[in-house]
Nucleic acid binder design. Structure first.
Lengths: 225, 225
DNA sequence: CATAATTGGTATATTATTGGATCAATTACT
DNA sequence: AGTAATTGATCCAATAATATACCAATTATG
C-alpha cells in the first residue's frame, strides 16, 4: 500500500488535467513551489513529474518564467480541415461548388442574386487591391452556397473557405493575384451569376468548373516557383 | 507562495472569454490600461498577453483605436450534420460523390478496387437482408471516398453517411428496400465500379448520379406514403 | 475644421518570482 | 538490511512583472 505520492502519480494527475481539458494549450501551470504545496509533496517530486511530462511533450519548462502546456487533445473535426493541404481543399471545392451552382439555380431568389451582383461590383472595384478582392471573393462563394438553402452545404463551404484566410495558401495566392488574374476571376464570377440568373444549371456548373480550374492552375503555378 | 499573474494567465483568461462567447466577434476589448486595472496587473503584462492572443489569431490590435476580437468559436459540427434533413443530405451526396468517382479513377489502386469488388459480392449476397445490405452499402461509399486519398473528402463523407444509420431515414429507407430495389442498387454499384476500373471518370460520375437519383426517388416515394 | 482626449507603441531601471542545482536527512519498498 | 525515492532546505541565474515616462496614431469633441 503506497502511502506516499510519487512523481509518477503527480505526473498522471497533471496529465489527466491536460487531456481532460482542465489545463488548456498555452496555459501556465502554477509554480513548482505552488504545485508542491497543492499536491502536498516536495518540490523535487514536482520537478521529477514535470520532467516526465516534458519528455512526453505535454509541457515545456521555461526557466525564470514557468511551465506551459504544449499539448492539445485534438478536436477531431477542426484538425481535418485545418490540416488539409491546398490541393485537397480545391478538390473538395471541385466536388461541391458546381453542384451548389445547380442548386442555386433551383432555389435562388432575386434578393440572393442582388447580393451576388453587389459583390461582383465590389470585386470589380478591387482590381488593384488583392486583399480586398480576396475578402469579397470569399463572401461571393459563401453567399452562393447560402442561396441553396441547404444548411449542410453551407456549413461545409464555410469551413472549407474559411481556412484560406489564415493559411500559407493566402501568401501563395497573393503572389499570383495580379490585376490580370483578378480581371479573369471577375469575368468568371459574372458568367456564373448570369448562368444562374437565366436558370441554366449545367452552364452555371461548367462556369464554376472553369473558375476553379483557373484557381487550381494559378495555385500549382505558384507552388512550382 | 503567492501565485503571480503572468501574461500567459491573462491570455488564458481573455481567450476563455472569447471561446466561451462572452467576447463576441468584432467586439472591442477595453483599453490596455483598463484591462491592466481590471486584472490588477501592469500594462506591460496586458500587452504581452494581447501579443500572444494576436499570434494565435484571437484578436487584432489597431493603434490608436483599440483591440478587437477576430476569432469566432466554431458552431459545433455535429449538430449541423445531425440536424440536416434527408433531402439536404442527399443533395450533399449529389455534390460530393460523382466527383469522388472522378477522383477515384485518378487515384484508385488495384487493392482499393479489390475491396470494393468484395463489398459488391457481399451486397449481392444480401438481396433478402435489408439491414446487412445497408451496412455493406455504407461501407462501399465509404471505401470509395477513401480511394481518393483526400482526407478532407473522406472526413466529410464519413460524417454524412454515418448519419443515415441513426436516422428516421433508415426507417423510411427500409420500407422501400425490397429485393427489387436492392437488385437495382447492386447493378448500379457494379456499373460504378466497372467505370472506375476502366478509368472512365465521366461515366463513373454519371453512374453515381443515376444511383443517387434512384435513392432520392425511393426516398421521396416513401415520404409521400 | 481644429483641438483635446484616448488609444496603442516604445523604452528603461527596478524588483519579485521562477526554475536550476545541490545536499544531507528521512521515508518507503524489496 | 539495503536500495531507491522523497523530503526540505539553501543559493543561484534567468526571466518576467512593475512603474514611469513619453511618442504617435486615432477618435471624439466643440
Amino acid at each position: 500500500m503506497t502511502l506516499r505520492k510519487g512523481a509518477a502519480d503527480i505526473a498522471t494527475m497533471i496529465r489527466r488535467e491536460i487531456t481532460k481539458g482542465t489545463r488548456e494549450l498555452h496555459e501556465r501551470l502554477p509554480s513548482e513551489r505552488a504545485l508542491a504545496e497543492h499536491y502536498d509533496v516536495a518540490r523535487g517530486t514536482i520537478r521529477e513529474a514535470l520532467s516526465q511530462l516534458m519528455r512526453d511533450g505535454f509541457v515545456a519548462v521555461r526557466p525564470g518564467s514557468g511551465t506551459y502546456v504544449t499539448y492539445q487533445p485534438q478536436a477531431p473535426s477542426e484538425n481535418v480541415i485545418e490540416a488539409a493541404n491546398p490541393l485537397e481543399l480545391i478538390d473538395a471545392r471541385f466536388a461541391l461548388e458546381p453542384h451548389i451552382c445547380r442548386l442555386a439555380v433551383l432555389h435562388g431568389r432575386r434578393t440572393d442574386f442582388d447580393t451576388l451582383e453587389s459583390l461582383c461590383i465590389q470585386m470589380e472595384n478591387c482590381v488593384d487591391d488583392a486583399a480586398a478582392f480576396s475578402e469579397a471573393d470569399t463572401a461571393f462563394h459563401k453567399i452562393l452556397a447560402e442561396t441553396t438553402g441547404n444548411t449542410l452545404l453551407i456549413w461545409i463551404i464555410n469551413r472549407v473557405t474559411s481556412v484560406r484566410s489564415q493559411d500559407e495558401w493566402t501568401r501563395m495566392r497573393h503572389l499570383t493575384l495580379d490585376q490580370r488574374m483578378i480581371t479573369t476571376y471577375n469575368a468568371q464570377h459574372r458568367q456564373i451569376l448570369n448562368a444562374i440568373r437565366t436558370r441554366e444549371p449545367e452552364r452555371a456548373a461548367n462556369m464554376m468548373k472553369d473558375h476553379l480550374e483557373a484557381a487550381r492552375l494559378s495555385l500549382t503555378r505558384a507552388a512550382e516557383t
